Simulated scan of single mutants.
Amino acid sequence: MKYLCSLGSNIEPELHFSRAKHYLHQVSDELTFTRDILTRPVDIDTPHPFLNALFTIETSLTATQLKQRFNAIEEQLGRDRNDPNRSIKDRTIDIDILGPVDEHPEVPTYLQDIASELTQG
């Protein structure tokens, strides 16, 4: 299955993107990333901009198994997944599954400019 996913960080983002990509390559060799872009924080009160990217990953894992792997990577990079306020705080890394590519998942507005980089002709 091929999934469309997103990557975001606003705490030492270049460092955490590099490390996250390293760990993601341990999950699958079938990865394609967009370029990284800076975006304004959404639904979080912080002066720190986010570094964001989209990527596709092809894997035999189910969506649930893949999300578990993504959560483990987030924890390895210092994200406290037990904090009930984690979604409104600065973060070292955030890795989300937007959905299976063949189901044309919705891309957040702030990432739509780079989504076309993943379309296959």
Results as ranks from 00 to 15, higher is better:
Ile97His: 05
Gly121Ser: 14
Cys5Ile: 10
Leu31Lys: 12
Leu7Ile: 14
Asn52Gly: 01
Thr64Met: 09
Ile95His: 00
Pro47Arg: 06
Pro49Met: 08
Leu51Glu: 01
Lys21Cys: 06
Ile11His: 03
Ser87Tyr: 09
Asp96Met: 05
Arg69Pro: 05
Leu31Thr: 10
Pro105Phe: 07
Leu54Gln: 02
Ile114Lys: 02
Asn71Val: 07
Gln76His: 06
Ala115Thr: 05
Gly99Thr: 04
Thr59His: 08
Leu51Phe: 06
Val27Tyr: 00
Gln68Cys: 02
Tyr23Met: 03
Arg35His: 13
Leu4Ser: 07
Ser6Arg: 04
Gly8Arg: 00
Ile93Trp: 02
Leu66Val: 03
Pro108His: 08
Phe50Tyr: 01
Thr92Pro: 01
Glu14Phe: 00
Lys21Asp: 06
Pro105Ser: 11
Gly8Pro: 02
Asp36Glu: 10
Met1Thr: 14
Asn85Gly: 11
Pro49Thr: 13
Leu4Lys: 08
Pro108Cys: 15
Thr62Ser: 15
Arg35Ile: 06
Pro47Cys: 02
Asn52Pro: 05
Leu111Tyr: 07
Ile73Ser: 10
Phe33Glu: 10
Arg86Tyr: 12
Ser87Gly: 07
Arg35Asn: 12
Leu66Trp: 01
Asp113Thr: 11
Glu30Met: 05
Gln68Tyr: 07
Ser60Ala: 06
Asp94Cys: 03
Gly121Arg: 08
Leu38Trp: 06
Arg81Thr: 10
Tyr3Asp: 11
Thr39Gly: 14
Ser18Tyr: 09
Asp94Val: 01
Ser18Thr: 12
Ala20Asn: 02
Arg79Asn: 12
Glu106Gly: 11
Lys2Met: 11
Leu61Tyr: 06
Asp90Lys: 02
Asp90Tyr: 01
Ala72Pro: 05
Ile88Val: 14
Leu54Ala: 00
Ile88Leu: 09
Phe70Gln: 08
Arg40Glu: 15
Asp36Val: 15
Leu98Cys: 07
Thr92Tyr: 04
Asp80Gly: 10
Glu106Gln: 13
Arg86Ser: 07
Thr62Arg: 05
Asp80Tyr: 09
Ser60Glu: 11
Tyr3Lys: 09
Leu111Arg: 13
Asp94Phe: 03
Asp45Met: 03
Asn82Met: 11
Asp43Tyr: 05
Asp29Arg: 10
Gln68Met: 08
Thr34Asp: 08
